[in-house]
Design a protein around this nucleic acid. Structure first.
Lengths: 211, 211
DNA sequence: AAGAATTCTTGACAGTCGTCAAGACTTTCT
DNA sequence: AGAAAGTCTTGACGACTGTCAAGAATTCTT
């Protein structure tokens, strides 16, 4: 990519950059699909390429490293995450409505995106062993905590009652419920989403300070 | 190992079996140490052997597979687990005493056994991708749930109040708190154990039905 | 102390991994 | 159309993996 100056060159270069970014995103999507099926430990670059429409060499044209590829994947996953949970922050008129909406959304994403969620937990755990993804993982974790907190505090507002739990604990508790439900669901327990739904609603209610 | 019958032979054979089992346990301990430092994805048999006082070939003398080795490790880890949490079920005279003891024990094992805990979460996640360890992992998970439930119900008994949460949810919630604290602790947050301690105490108290 | 059984080491094997370079193919520009 | 830049494929490399077999070293038995 020559960096010659000039109006035409710039327009062209930008278009090429867009194409470049598009292909990166496309390859990352293939990589995420592979990772979510095999897990981090058993995913190789050749396998990723085979799950795409390209050969294995192209990965090193668009990504310097395996680390850079997976880091890019993690960041792309985060974008998905945010949209998913922003979909959850429904426009709820009452506290009960919000509880229902949130519980249903949790159960829904458990059912539909189970393999992606197990990948998220896999990568989060990898970050405990290797430095590489740690920063990005922590960033995602914090944004998840914030999304949970938005729901919890909004719920308390609707209920006209202060929250009795700090943001970090609230996130940890919901995450615990979700992770256990995921474990059960991926083990063939089809009642897991429904159970999660009721657990989530109860927990949300319990976060309110009882007068 | 010849299986000749006779009193002497039997005594000898048993002794040999014991030695065999002892060495298996010894190798599994080395393996667990390596796994807890590198994680499942980056642990090789040669690395395990190098962290022991034997050469890499010996692993196939005592274990058929890599899978059999790691399965054995998981089971040995479970034994450690049980003793650890049984140590936690302190003889507490009051509900408050139990809360303090449990909170301190959680904070303590977070500080001391952090790498082992991250290994546990790693292996539990692996079981979501490959069938091999799934049965053993689920067994451990259930026994952890039971240990948590023993504490929760004992605490309610001491407080003279029924429990407001089913066993599975209680375990999931404590596990969520612990996992987040582990994440923070391994990222250098030295306040994580203390924070976990107070969170745990508050959660335990909140499990009681408010009259 | 000699022979047998067990235990451990060494070296090799087939396969896979991440990485890279040479070149073919495609698109774009002048 | 010809040149240039960009894109992709192919094949190779060294390193590493799990596994295994042959034999040395050790321990045990008689």
């Amino acid at each position: 990519m020559t960096q010659v100056v000039g109006k035409n060159q710039e327009r062209i270069s930008r278009r090429q950059v867009d194409k470049f970014a598009e292909r990166r995103a496309q390859l990352a999507t293939s990589a995420l699909r592979t990772l979510s099926e095999l897990g981090y430990a058993r995913t190789s670059l050749r396998e990723i390429a085979q799950n795409s429409e390209f050969s294995h060499g192209v990965l090193h044209y668009y990504f310097r490293d395996k680390v850079e590829l997976i880091t890019y994947c993690v960041r792309q996953y985060k974008a998905e995450c945010v949209t998913r949970y922003d979909r959850i922050v429904v426009t709820a008129g009452s506290a009960e409505e919000l509880r229902d909406g949130f519980g249903a959304a949790m159960a829904g994403t458990l059912r539909e995106d189970a393999t992606m969620h197990r990948l998220w937990y896999d990568l989060r755990n990898q970050s405990l062993f290797e430095e590489s993804f740690r920063a990005d993982v922590l960033e995602i974790d914090q944004s998840l905590e914030q999304m949970i907190w938005r729901i919890v505090s909004h719920h308390a507002e609707l209920a006209g009652s202060p929250v009795a739990v700090p943001p970090a604990a609230a996130y940890a508790l919901f995450d615990g419920l979700f992770q256990q439900a995921l474990l059960r669901f991926l083990n063939g327990d089809d009642t897991a989403p429904a159970n999660l739904q009721t657990s989530v609603k109860q927990l949300l209610q319990r976060f309110l300070t009882h007068s």
